[in-house]
Design a protein around this nucleic acid. Structure first.
Length: 793
DNA sequence: TCAGCTCACACTTTTGAATAGC
DNA sequence: AGCTATTCAAAAGTGTGAGCTG
C-alpha cells in the first residue's frame, strides 16, 4: 500500500482530533469529560486555539455563532459501544454506521441557511489489530486518502430547519473501496477514525460564508473493520440494530436457529440421498397413512438399505427416509430432489414457526429475549450500564466524557428510526474500562497538517472521460490548478509553524480520486495531522483512565483536549495568495478576480476537478440549468480559474442579495491557495493520499453538549433526489467555450425541497446529484448537490 | 499458516405500489 | 370518485460463515 514515505505530507503533525476544542463556556458539563489526555493535549496546543477569544472585546462578529450547540442525541448508545471499543464494518459497497449520528442543533440563526457536513478523520497514524481481547496499534497507518465529506441531504437549510428536528447522518456509508464512485466515505480498515460534524453557514450551496462550527464527539470514535473482532461489539450491534434483529437469540437467524437449520439441512440432504437411492423406502415411511398399504410390502425389502444409509449419516431427529409427519402429503408420490427440498423447506418453516411461537415463550432464551426487548423498547438507562462506560472509553486516546450528570431523562428513540434504535442495555458485563492506555497525541498538532477533504458527490464511471464527472469531484483529470482550491487560513495559529500552504506533492495530484470533490483542508483544522504525521512523544500524556481490556499501547497521544474551547472563528492571520480564475465568468460585470470575503477558512481548500473554464458557462443561465445544462453549473460553481482571495477579515459579511448570483457565489466557495496540481490522467484510479498544501487554522470545535435524552423527533430524509451527474460538463476535455449539452442526455428535474421552511427563499429547484440515477437507481444517500440549480436569493 | 477480505446467505426492516374498504 | 387502511413485494440493511487472497 501507500507508505508515508511516498507522501511526505502525511508525516505532518499529529492528529487534529487531538485538537479537541471544547467550548468551555457553552458546554461546561463537558469540560471534565476528558480530563487527563485532553488536558495534556490542550496544553500543547496553541493558547489562542485553546482559549476562547475575549468575549467582551469582540462585538458584533461574535454573534450567535458562539452559541451554536450540538448534542449527540444517542450519546448513550455511542458510549455503550465506545466503552467496549466501537467497530464499524466497512465494505466495498458501503456500510452504514451504527450507531448513527443523531444530533440536535441549537443556537443557529433560524433565518440563515446552513450546510451540515460529516467527515471522518483518522485519529492517529496507526494501524490496529485486535489482540488479546483488545485493540493494539501494530504499525503505521496506510496513506491517507482524500477525505470525503458527506453533506447532509437537507443542506442547505435554515437554522430553524436544523433546530426543529433530529439530524441524522445515517445515510452516510463507509467503504474501504478506494475507487468508490458512490460517494461513500472511504476509510482504511483497522484504523481509528473520528467523525466530525461541521455546521457551515451558507448563503446558498455555493456561498459558504460566515461562521463554521465543527463538533467532535469523542465517544463516536471507532475502528474500521471488515469483520467484527470483538464479540461484545457484535452482541451490542445485534441487540441494538433492528436490522440485526434476526441474529438475536429469539431471531430466526440466531445461532441457535442457524445451527438447527444446518442440522436440518444436513438431514434433508441425507434424506434426499436416501430418497434418490432408495425410493421404495419412502412408501415404507408412509405407513401411517392408509393409502400406503400397497407399498408396505416393499418396506421390509428396503429396510436394510435404509439402515445402512442412515448408519453412515449423522443422527437425525427423525431418521426415517425423509418422512416427516408434516410432509406426509409430499410422500404420496415419489419425491424427487426438488420435492424433497420443498418438503425440507416446509418442515424448516414449520419448525421455525413452532420455535418462534412455542419455544420462545417460557424458554430460557425467551426470557432473556423478553428482557432485551423490554430494554429495547423502553430503555432503562439506569443500572445496567457499566460504570466505566461513563468515565472511560475503550479507546484510550479518546476517553469517554465522564457523565457530568446523570441522565435525568432517558432517550426515547424513535422506533421508526432504524439507524438508531433504542439503546438496549446489553446483558453482558463489559469490562470496566480504565483508560490508562497511552493517549493519542493531540498536542503535537502545532504543525498545521494538510488535509484533503472531498465532498462525497457521486461520480460517473471513471473509465469514460467524457462520462459525467462527479459533481464537485476532485478528480485529477483536470489540471489541479483549475479545480483545486486550497484553504486560505483565516485562522492561523501562531504556533502553526507552517502557516503557509503546503505544496502538495506532485504525485498526490495525479493520484487524486476523481470521484471525489476534494476540499483540501476544507474542514481541516491547522494542526490536524494527517496520517503518517510525525509522532511526537513529548506530548504524550498517558491517560489517567486505563482500560485493561482495550489498550492501544502504541497509540500516540492524540486525544482531544478535554478542555472545551469556545467555537469561535479566529481572526485571520495569514492570507494565502489570491487566485485568479483563468476563466472569465459572465457575472454581472464580473471580472476575472473575485473576492471571497465569506469563504470559510476551512472550506476554502476545495479541489474541483474537471472544471472547465468556459466563459460562456451554461451555469450562468440559471433558469435553464436544472434541466438542460447541468454540468456547466458546477463549473460555474467552481471556476477553474484562480481568483484573489480577500482577507478573511470579514468572516461573516452581510449578505447582499445582489451578489447572490450563482456565479459569484460559486466563487466564494471555492478558493484555492495551493499551487496548481498536475492533471491526473485517470481520476478515481488513484487516491490522493497527500493533501494539497493548505494552511487552515483550527476551526472552532465545539463539543456536543450532554444529550438531552428527549424523544428524538423522527428523522426522515426529506429529499433525496437523483440526477445524472453534472460533471460531464466539467470535463476539461470538453470545449470550454461550448456547452456540452449533447454529450449527456437531459435528465428530468426533480424539485428539491431544500428547506422545510415554508418560507423558503429558494425559488429554484435545488437538485441533488446521484450517480446512480444514471443507471435508473435511486440513491438512498442524499448528499449530492447539484450546483447547476443553485438557488438565487 | 494465518490474518484479513469478499461474497453469498438468511433474516430483518423499510418503502412504495397495489388493492380493498369506506 | 376520492380517501384511507391494509397487503404485498421489492429493496436495502445486518451479521454470519465459508472461501479466497496475499
Amino acid at each position: 500500500m501507500l507508505s508515508v514515505e511516498m507522501y511526505p505530507s502525511l508525516a505532518l503533525g499529529p492528529q487534529r482530533i487531538g485538537d479537541c476544542f471544547y467550548r468551555d463556556r457553552e458546554a461546561p458539563p463537558h469540560m471534565p469529560l476528558f480530563p487527563p489526555t485532553c488536558d495534556a493535549a490542550a496544553k500543547a496546543l496553541p493558547p489562542r486555539l485553546l482559549a476562547p477569544p475575549p468575549v467582551p472585546n469582540e462585538p458584533a462578529t461574535k454573534t450567535q455563532k458562539d452559541e451554536v450547540k450540538m448534542e449527540l442525541e444517542n450519546a448513550f448508545l455511542w458510549k455503550q459501544f465506545s466503552s467496549v471499543g466501537t467497530e464499524m464494518i466497512i465494505t466495498k459497497k458501503g456500510r452504514r454506521m451504527f450507531p448513527g449520528l443523531r444530533l440536535k442543533l441549537s443556537g443557529l440563526n433560524p433565518s440563515l441557511r446552513y450546510i451540515l457536513l460529516l467527515d471522518i478523520i483518522p485519529v492517529d497514524n496507526s494501524r490496529y489489530r485486535f489482540q488479546g481481547g483488545g485493540w493494539q496499534a501494530v504499525g503505521g497507518a496506510e496513506a491517507r486518502l482524500p477525505d470525503r465529506v458527506f453533506i447532509h441531504p437537507d443542506s442547505p437549510a435554515t437554522g430553524a430547519h436544523w433546530q426543529s428536528r433530529t439530524i441524522s447522518f445515517h445515510f452516510a456509508k463507509l467503504t474501504n473501496n478506494t475507487l468508490d464512485s458512490q460517494g461513500h466515505i472511504i476509510l482504511h480498515s483497522l484504523h481509528r477514525y473520528q467523525p466530525r460534524i461541521h455546521v457551515i453557514e451558507a448563503r446558498d450551496v455555493l456561498r459558504w460564508g460566515g461562521g463554521q462550527h465543527s463538533f467532535v464527539f469523542p465517544e463516536t470514535q471507532f475502528i474500521t473493520v471488515t469483520a467484527y473482532q470483538n464479540n461484545k461489539i457484535t452482541e451490542l450491534k445485534i441487540n441494538s440494530n433492528p436490522f440485526a434483529k434476526g441474529f438475536r437469540e429469539d431471531g430466526m437467524n440466531s445461532k441457535k436457529q442457524r445451527d438447527a437449520r444446518q442440522k436440518r439441512k444436513i438431514a434433508v440432504l441425507t434424506e434426499t440421498l436416501d430418497i434418490v437411492n432408495c425410493d421404495p423406502c419412502d412408501s415404507t415411511e408412509l405407513l401411517p397413512q392408509p393409502t400406503t398399504t400397497t407399498t408396505t410390502s416393499t418396506a421390509t425389502a428396503s429396510a436394510d438399505l435404509q439402515a445402512l444409509a442412515l448408519a453412515s449419516l449423522p443422527p437425525l431427529p427423525n431418521p426415517s427416509c425423509g418422512y416427516r409427519p408434516e410432509e406426509a402429503s409430499y410422500q404420496d408420490t415419489p419425491l424427487d430432489l426438488g420435492q424433497a427440498f420443498m418438503a425440507s423447506q416446509m418442515s424448516d418453516i414449520s419448525i421455525s414457526m413452532a420455535n418462534g411461537m412455542q419455544e420462545t415463550p417460557g424458554s430460557e432464551v425467551a426470557n432473556s429475549i423478553i428482557e432485551r426487548s423490554d430494554t429495547m423498547s423502553e430503555p432503562a438507562y439506569t443500572s445496567s450500564f457499566p460504570a466505566a462506560q461513563a468515565n472511560s472509553s475503550s479507546f484510550p486516546s479518546a476517553p469517554l466524557p465522564q457523565s457530568s450528570s446523570s441522565y435525568p431523562a432517558l432517550p426515547v428513540p424513535d422506533p421508526s428510526d432504524t439507524s438508531d434504535p433504542p439503546p438496549p442495555i446489553p446483558p453482558i458485563d463489559y469490562p470496566s474500562i480504565l483508560s490508562s492506555s497511552p493517549t493519542l497525541s493531540s498536542s503535537t498538532t502545532t504543525t498545521p497538517s494538510l488535509q484533503q477533504t472531498s465532498f462525497t458527490f457521486p461520480t460517473p464511471p471513471p473509465s469514460n472521460s467524457s462520462s459525467p464527472q462527479p459533481l464537485l469531484s476532485s478528480s485529477s483529470s483536470s489540471p489541479p490548478s483549475a479545480n483545486t482550491y486550497h484553504t486560505i487560513p483565516e485562522m492561523i495559529s501562531p504556533h502553526t509553524t507552517t502557516g503557509g500552504s503546503f505544496p502538495a506533492p506532485p504525485s498526490a495530484c495525479q493520484s487524486g480520486l476523481q470521484d471525489q470533490m476534494s476540499a483540501h483542508s476544507l474542514l481541516t483544522q491547522p494542526g490536524q495531522p494527517l496520517q503518517g504525521e510525525a509522532i511526537t512523544s513529548g506530548n504524550n500524556s498517558p491517560s489517567d483512565q486505563s482500560s485493561a481490556a482495550f489498550i492501544y499501547p502504541n497509540v500516540l497521544p492524540t486525544n482531544p483536549d478535554p478542555a472545551p474551547v469556545v467555537a469561535q472563528p479566529l481572526p485571520n492571520q495569514t492570507h494565502l495568495p489570491a487566485h485568479n480564475l483563468p476563466c472569465s465568468l459572465p457575472t454581472h460585470g464580473a471580472t476575472m478576480s473575485f473576492a471571497f470575503p465569506s469563504v470559510p477558512p476551512h472550506m476554502q481548500n476545495l479541489s474541483f476537478p474537471n472544471v472547465s473554464p468556459s466563459p460562456a458557462h451554461p451555469a450562468l443561465h440559471l433558469p435553464n440549468l436544472s434541466h438542460q445544462a447541468p454540468a456547466p453549473s458546477l463549473a460555474a460553481a467552481f471556476p477553474p480559474s484562480s481568483f484573489t482571495h480577500p482577507s478573511s477579515s470579514l468572516p461573516h459579511p452581510p449578505f447582499q442579495p445582489s451578489s447572490c448570483l450563482a456565479v459569484t457565489s460559486s466563487f466564494q466557495q471555492s478558493v484555492s491557495s495551493a499551487p496548481p496540481l498536475p492533471p491526473t490522467a485517470h481520476p478515481q484510479s488513484l487516491p490522493n493520499p497527500s493533501a494539497s498544501s493548505s494552511t487552515s487554522s483550527y476551526p472552532p470545535v465545539e463539543l456536543g453538549a450532554i444529550p438531552q435524552f428527549n424523544p428524538p423527533a423522527p428523522y426522515r430524509p426529506e429529499m433525496v433526489l437523483h440526477h445524472p451527474s453534472l460533471l460531464p460538463q466539467l470535463d476539461p476535455t470538453l470545449p470550454s467555450s461550448t456547452p456540452p449539452p449533447a454529450l449527456y442526455p437531459a435528465f428530468p428535474s426533480y424539485p428539491l425541497r431544500l428547506c422545510q421552511d415554508p418560507h423558503s427563499s429558494l425559488s429554484i429547484p435545488f437538485r441533488h446529484l446521484y450517480r446512480q440515477h444514471q443507471h435508473g437507481h435511486t440513491h438512498p444517500q442524499g448528499s449530492y448537490l447539484d450546483m447547476s440549480t443553485r438557488p438565487v436569493f
